[in-house]
Simulated scan of single mutants.
Amino acid sequence: MGWKMGILWLLVVLVLLGMAYVRLAPSQVARWHVAPVGDANKDFKRGALRVVETGPDGLARFDAIARAAPRTQVLAGSVAEGMATYVTRTRMMGFPDYTTAAQDGDTLRIVARSRFGRSDLGVNRKRLEGWLNRLQAGG
């Protein structure tokens, strides 16, 4: 019975270490703060890309919405630079999701994607569409 408890404790420690890594691992700006590429909306397993006509102030309005979102902070960039990347962490486990928005004239390109896992179960697409609905509603 002792070796079974040892294995159980080992598994508990490994799970806790994994959870700590997810929460504490630094975000590599060079990897995540990259301009979205594409001219059409696209969904993929770990995120989504949206291309919307917003006028020249789209990024500024989007930035205000993203900054007001729960558990979201700016990773890099700014409205003045024309591109910003945000990190949103899941409520329970703290998984980081990255959203990058770039203004190109009147077009705003936004990509939202997860860092961990094979699928985000549509979470990034849903968040992105919620933010875009607020953007189109005026704030």
Rank of each mutant, 00 (worst) to 15 (best):
R71I: 06
G130F: 04
R61W: 06
V52N: 13
P70T: 15
D104T: 08
T107W: 01
A112P: 05
D57I: 14
S119I: 01
A112V: 03
V123S: 09
Q73M: 13
E129K: 02
W131R: 10
M92P: 00
E53C: 10
M93H: 05
R127I: 02
Q28L: 14
K45R: 12
G38K: 06
V79I: 09
S114Y: 02
A69I: 02
Y86R: 06
V34Y: 04
R23I: 03
V51E: 07
A76I: 03
D39Q: 09
V34S: 13
A66F: 01
K126I: 07
A40I: 10
Q103D: 04
Q103I: 07
A48F: 08
D97A: 05
T88I: 04
L132G: 00
L49D: 05
L11W: 06
A112G: 13
D120G: 00
R115L: 02
V51I: 08
S114E: 07
V15C: 08
M19W: 09
K42L: 12
E81K: 15
R91H: 11
L16V: 12
V13F: 06
K126Q: 11
L121F: 14
R118C: 14
A25F: 12
A40M: 08
W3I: 12
R115K: 00
W3S: 14
A66G: 05
T99G: 14
H33V: 01
G47N: 02
L132T: 07
R109W: 00
R67L: 15
L59V: 11
G117N: 01
V15G: 05
V74C: 10
S114Q: 08
A68T: 07
R115I: 00
Y21P: 13
A84Y: 05
P70G: 13
G77P: 01
W9I: 11
T107A: 03
V37E: 13
L17P: 06
A48D: 09
G58D: 07
G2H: 08
L49K: 04
W9K: 10
V87S: 12
L8D: 13
G130P: 00
A48T: 13
A20V: 04
L49M: 00
R61M: 05
Q103K: 06
R134I: 12
G122L: 08
L128P: 00
M83E: 02
F116Y: 08
D63S: 14
N124T: 04
G130W: 03
T54M: 09
R71H: 08
M93T: 12
L10S: 15
L132C: 03
